[in-house]
Amino acid sequence: MTIEIRNISKSYGDNKILQNIDLKIESGELVALLGPSGSGKTTLLRVIAGIEQADEGSGPVLFDDVDVSDVDLGKRRIGFVFQHYALFKHMNVFENIAFGLRAKPRRERPGEAQIREKVQTLLDLIQLGNMAQRYPSQLSGGQRQRVALARALAVEPRVLLLDEPFGALDATVRRELRRWLRRLHDTIHVTTIFVTHDQEEALEVSDRVAVMNAGRIEQYAPPQEVYEKPASPFVFKFLGNYNLFHGRGQSGDGAALVRPHDIVIHRDRDSAGPDARLGLVSHIGFGGPVVKVELETEDKTHVDVEVTTPTFNDLALKRGETVWFALRTQQEYEYDFVI
């Protein structure tokens, strides 16, 4: 199912949470809403779900080109997974998943046997087949997350909405679960939107990323494009570490943003090229496959550089040495946009 929202705004009093948001999601896509806290990503997700209403004067929310703005939360046929799962704590896993099926009006309600079969299928899908009788308090965080997902899927939603789905989990479980989510999505192909503040997560899992900042979408593109061609300095900065160089723009005053791994260190001037500059190695941080080198330029600014460990070994850098460095690629912006 496609989702399209047009000109959505949302404010609490004077506080503008969303400002004129337009977004179109193709059927079967997995889209990440990425942004820092307070960027409005969760609110946008809740507007799509129908948990929050957009301000007066906003455009429609279209599911398959049908306006659902005035359709109740329960009738939108969305599956919503809350950040803290909101599992019903007095019901066991089975009853949690079966809740939506049992809540259907009598005409549409499946029989008890069908409910059992359906829940069992979902339990197998989330690999918790033998935990049907457990209560939420007896599950780990990752298991709860999967139960919440199965509960949402039980009613065969047209769209799956996940609010910070991995936010409350520790690092290892996060990585595992997001791969599982990607595989799950590839199996069931339901249009999915998830909210995250973790750029790595967004880039790794999604088909497209909407980067949000201060209630606006800064860029909406596939992960690779977002990373390689950031539409704004904000996107560039939000997606990773960077160095900021002033006054190096080709069209007069401006600034350039450079990723630490897009800086190349040379021992001698000739191989470094014409634009190379001098830097003093002020600190070396070892950390696995990448070595972080901190350079101090003549005008006393610090430049972070990342080199692969083999390259570092070839260079045989030492603290206090002076080296040349050159920029491999850079993003240039006019000053107004940077600061």
Partner: peptide, 21 residues
């Protein structure tokens, strides 16, 4: 209100949400 919202999003009526959740 998360649990109530979850129940409503699963299609439960207001009364059902109140009495069951």
């Amino acid at each position: 209100t998360d649990e109530e919202l979850a129940a409503l999003s699963l299609g439960a009526s207001g009364w059902r949400t109140f009495f069951k959740i």
